[in-house]
């Protein structure tokens, strides 16, 4: 016979937000680290980033012949940071899409009394964690195999840590933006995050300085916090004098722009998600599966 006394829930406020974030992170990690096959684990965690680095080597030598040998550090840092964007931003959308389409749990998660954004952010952070190994492999190979100018003595640790935290916040804001679109579409939702990721890869200075972009794209790039994040990470990790996207700006100005844009995009993302969520409830598409 079951005890009939109800367990009092402690809902609401920061504590519940934190609890939801933690549990969602746990769930995301269970999903991401569910490697029953060591070979697959190797491919995913080591070989894939290694492949990216080898592509980088090839690009570097091609570009190096054109007289841009100083770009090696630029390449390495951009390539090391980009997996956080892929996993974090696209991961937010993929969490929603996989809950809806694959696990078929979205309606139960959504109608539970959680702050739904905390859930999505928790899942995105779990995905971002998987980018750590890729970033580490890229930095190690970049430093000790390719000879990128990464030296412990010249790394500005406090600056890099602040930039990294703001970058992750920016990635999460972009993730919420993407999920705001994904919540309203079903059929093409799987493809959309990759499309957005590819567009950002092009304009946010991941592999080449935004100064080489056409003026319109350059202006667009300056409105995206990822551009400033990658710039700040390079300034934090590489020694003074390395190639950057905005050589005329000081380190402090770059960090300032990153902080402002991260805050602006977070507010925009919050608003966009609120509107999209309401529209999805209105149109009845929130838990509609696409039979993908």
């Amino acid at each position: 016979m079951l005890a009939s006394s109800r367990v009092s829930p402690s809902l609401g406020g920061a504590r519940h937000w934190w609890r939801t974030l933690r549990v969602a992170y746990w769930l995301g990690w269970q999903i991401e680290s569910n490697w029953t096959d060591p070979f697959l684990f190797f491919v995913y965690s080591i070989a894939r980033p290694l492949g990216s680095v080898l592509i980088l080597v090839f690009m570097y030598y091609v570009v190096g012949r054109a007289g841009a040998a100083g770009l090696l550090g630029f390449f390495v840092v951009g390539t090391a940071c980009w997996p956080f964007v892929v996993q974090g931003m696209m991961g937010t959308a993929w969490s929603l899409i996989s809950d809806r389409e694959h696990w078929k749990t979205l309606r139960y998660v959504y109608t539970s009394p959680i702050p739904f954004r905390a859930y999505l952010i928790g899942r995105a952070l779990a995905q971002s964690t998987t980018a750590v190994s890729a970033a580490a492999v890229t930095l190690v190979v970049g430093r000790w195999v390719l000879g990128a100018p990464l030296h412990v003595a010249t790394i500005h640790f406090p600056y890099t840590l602040v930039a990294f935290a703001l970058g992750i916040a920016s990635v999460l804001a972009l993730g919420l933006m993407v999920v705001s679109a994904a919540i309203l579409i079903s059929g093409e939702a799987w493809r959309m995050p990759e499309g957005v990721g590819a567009a950002l890869y092009l304009i946010s200075g991941a592999v080449f300085p935004v100064s080489v972009l056409p003026p319109v794209l350059r202006t667009l790039a300056q409105g995206v916090p990822l551009t400033w994040w990658l710039e700040a990470m390079r300034r934090g990790l590489l020694p003074p004098g390395a190639v950057t996207s905005f050589p005329q700006m000081t380190d402090r100005q770059v960090l300032g722009w990153l902080a402002v844009l991260a805050a602006v995009w977070m507010v925009l993302a919050w608003t966009a998600f609120t509107l999209a969520e309401r529209r999805a409830r209105d149109r009845g598409v929130l838990d509609r599966e696409s039979a993908f």
Partner: peptide
Amino acid sequence: WMFSQFYGLPSRAA
């Protein structure tokens, strides 16, 4: 357990 946490139930009781 995961869903019980969404409803704010203490872990052990859940």
